[in-house]
Design a protein around this nucleic acid. Sequence first.
DNA 1: ACCGGTTGTGGAACCGGTTCCAGGAGCCCG
DNA 2: CGGGCTCCTGGAACCGGTTCCACAACCGGT
Lengths: 313, 313
Amino acid sequence: MPTLADVAALAGVSKATASRALGRPDLAAPETVARVRAAAEQLGFVPNRAATQLARGKTGVVAVVVPTLDNTFFTPIIGGAQARAADSGMQLTIAVHSLEHAAQLAAVEQLAHQVDGFLLTAPRGSDEIVRAAASFKPTVLIDREIEGMTSAVADTATAFGALVTRFAEKGHERILYIGGPAGSWQDRQRQAAIRAAAESSGATLTMLGPYPSTFAAGVETAEAVVAARATAVVPYATSIGLGLMFALLSRGIRDIVVSSERMIVESLGLGDVPSIDVDGEKLGEVAMDQLMTLLGERREPTPTRRRLTVRIS
Amino acid sequence: MPTLADVAALAGVSKATASRALGRPDLAAPETVARVRAAAEQLGFVPNRAATQLARGKTGVVAVVVPTLDNTFFTPIIGGAQARAADSGMQLTIAVHSLEHAAQLAAVEQLAHQVDGFLLTAPRGSDEIVRAAASFKPTVLIDREIEGMTSAVADTATAFGALVTRFAEKGHERILYIGGPAGSWQDRQRQAAIRAAAESSGATLTMLGPYPSTFAAGVETAEAVVAARATAVVPYATSIGLGLMFALLSRGIRDIVVSSERMIVESLGLGDVPSIDVDGEKLGEVAMDQLMTLLGERREPTPTRRRLTVRIS
DNA sequence: ACCGGTTGTGGAACCGGTTCCAGGAGCCCG
DNA sequence: CGGGCTCCTGGAACCGGTTCCACAACCGGT
């Protein structure tokens, strides 16, 4: 493995100059920069990460904290964040923690020593816990908003409200919402938006829940959905919706419409079923961009909130 | 942030001794170890990762390479690997690369400089590409076997064969297999096992495919499945099976049995539908254990192959 | 011809651990 | 009682970059 010293020797300059030529080309003579770059190229020089980190006092790593990897809501976020991180020469590590209980804070604190910042998804735990988790390092909160914290959210609440309105416009009079996990921040937002939409469109609204975001939970809800005599259902999560659709079909019930995500509706050829389209990758990218900004700033930065609009169709 | 020097000072020993007391307690006097540990505890000392890495010439990071994060087959593997990595104080980074084309090798090579080893999933690309990707650092191949490489696989081929046998025993005479992505190693194994099972049980076998492992692809297959007049279907992936089951139910078809994974079958209450149960987390754990062994060994280690049996029910 | 200012460079310290090596203390043995 | 061991320990070198600081060369302006 060639080192910076090797490059410097080949280029006929000092280590200091070589370092500057590669890292801050504006501080070196153009001709020198060219020579050093050529030398680095020729030797196949790749800077030693650990050395750079040690000298700079930064780790070059950011951690994304997710409650689980089984939920397809989070994985695209990770993918987007990963892509952006790679673009900036950063590494992304994954930590699986629900942050529901204070005990799990310890794990995050432990990790805090090894990273420059956090992308935090915390769908459930209390604001206090999330604040505590964010207190160690610069942190961007994903898919949740807390006063005073930088965050990136997909504005599903508005989209869910629109779904209800759409259903009402199509003549549905009894609409049912299947709530997500207990304590979910997004669930609270959606409930509020859905209530408002139902009220202003005059539809009768039934609320079910809480349910975990799983296929099995969706299957479970079928009975209650039928009992409620609703004609349109808005489920909290795709997995719940799928389970429900499945259970309904198994019973031969075909006159209850369940909203879903666009991809599902499309592949099933259910052209006119209302659907939402959350761009999880974009969410991850945006959050990573925000984190980069935080990491680049000198003093206490002002928290920024990004809201991605969610298309419905 | 307290450093080792602080700990050493508080304990009244030298940096060297402090380092040994914490890292190789057998090399220091028990009484000294206790004192240093107490000092470290008191100061809340956490070793600087970059410094350790630099001194030792290791990164303490392993990368898990997966083709996508959208497939629920891979995410539990990542989870399992992550857990084991954390136990050993290692970090896990995720790289998303299909390794199908030689160009993507460059990305892996780039990453190779920043990690100690790889966990490689490469469901598709050629053996040559995979070998090349593994040539940079110690590597454990996951869910695929290649001559001369250390690997951990879930023995789904045998399980798929057993599914076919099971179907045949139940009286199904026309069984259909929906093949996975073109070039998939696992698909080849499964096809072979399924063919053998069908032959020995006298069932007629129809092979479809290739198809990508998506819900949409499953929906697509419905027509062909019906046309084949099969009564039992074994789909390559859970997502394909779900899509198919959905499409069949939508058409009111209920007399075609589709095997699936246990969790699906259970939550749908389809008690007697044959199912498999792949423990992805275990797979990730086993692979990480193998990698740790590789990393610990001096000379060229002998490749080991682990095969996890897959339960069917 | 002389001076203040910019520009580019090299030497050396530094980041925070790990490890080699030499040496002192204490032990058993003949 | 002295030689040879083992057991611990501290000093110092080292990993491979980054950056502070001093200094030399060169610029245009008086």
